[in-house]
Structure formats: C-alpha cells, structure tokens
C-alpha cells in the first residue's frame, strides 16, 4: 500500500491509523516561526464514524488505507446481509448491519448506492442523494389543501419517516433528499 507524507495530506485521503481505515477531513499546518512544524489533522474513523484530532510531525509518513468507493445496485436482504452488485461485472458484495447503518431506511431494491470497500469488503453504504419511494402510511389529508404549510409524517416503503405536505396521500411516490431527510416533490407515475 502507498505511504503518504504529511505534506500530501488533504481532505478525502484515506490512511491507516491505529489499525483502522480513516479519512482525512482537514489538515492544519502548525508551525512556530522558529521551531518544529506540526500537522494537526482532523480524521474520521471509517469503521466507527468518530471524528478525532491527531498531530503529526511535519514530514512524518503513514500507511495509506485501501479504501475505494464503488457504485453498486442494491439487490436484496437475506435477513442477515444486504446484497449489492456491480452492474458492469456482476460482482456481488454482502454488507452487514454495521456497514449498512442508517442507510437501511433508504434502501429500495434496484437502486444504485455507493459502497465504500476496505480491503475489498464493505465498510459503509451511502444511498443516492435522491430516492423515489412510495408512501405506505400517512394521515389522510384535506382535499384541496395544496398550500403545503405545516405538513405531516409519512412512512415510506423502505421504512423511513419523512414530513410531507398535507395533500400527499398513501400510495403516492415522492422524491426525498437522503442527505437532509427532506421531502422534495411528488413523482408523477
């Protein structure tokens, strides 16, 4: 695996730290005019999601982490694992509950996701920025109310609960931004 020096540190670089794969968020160069230079680095542990700060001596090196993002199609859940496939090659990967994490509530079969692989096994699953999901449960809204003010909770086919305008009904398909968890629009069938 590649070795990186602190002067190659930048946001997004994947390195190994305390035996865990990590992603650099921010790298601050700290140097007294007369004295030792340091790099104060904010790092996300990709296994735990925790963000920590760590100081390196400038010029020190660390091992890179074999972490790659790949676009995959979500296939199905077998009760224990969630199965994904690379469309071009038909390679399949299975992600455990830990790797799927909160993304579970957005997963719909056949949707494309990003799988982050560490040493070729799934570390995390990122849903598409926008998903289109059918509403399975919500209070009946008032007919003719198109103002969208206020809103009400709605449960989606994947299990997520989002706030929707009053006029949206059970069975309708809506577009949701998975980054904010917010309703975007209705989708015409």
């Amino acid at each position: 695996m590649a070795i990186y020096s602190t002067n190659e540190f930048k946001g997004g670089l994947k390195i190994m730290l305390d035996n865990d794969p990590c992603s650099i968020i921010e790298n601050e160069f700290v140097k007294p005019g007369k004295g030792q230079a340091f790099n104060r680095v904010r790092i996300r542990n990709l296994k735990t999601g925790r963000v920590i700060e760590r100081t390196f001596k400038s010029g020190d090196t660390v091992e890179g982490a074999d972490v790659v993002d790949r676009d995959m199609q979500y296939l199905y859940n077998d009760g224990e694992f969630w199965h994904f496939m690379v469309p071009d090659t038909f390679e399949q990967y299975q992600a455990d509950k830990n790797a799927v994490g909160d993304t579970i509530k957005w997963l719909k079969e056949q949707d494309m996701c990003i799988l982050t692989l560490w040493n070729d096994s799934p570390l995390s699953v990122t849903p598409p920025n926008f998903v289109e999901l059918a509403i399975t449960e919500t209070d009946p809204g008032l007919k003719g109310d198109t103002s969208g003010g206020g809103g009400k909770p709605a449960t989606l086919e994947s299990g997520a609960v989002v706030r929707v305008p009053l006029f949206v009904q059970i069975g309708e398909v809506i577009k949701v931004d998975t980054r904010t968890g917010e309703y975007v629009s209705r989708v015409k069938e």
Binding site: V30, K31, P32, G35, Q36, F38, R40, T55, K57
Partner: peptide, 9 residues
Amino acid sequence: VWLDFIFSH
C-alpha cells in the same frame, strides 16, 4: 520539541 508542541497546541 515538547515546548513547541505544548506552546502551539
């Protein structure tokens, strides 16, 4: 180096 570290951090 200790002094530089503690002073800057």
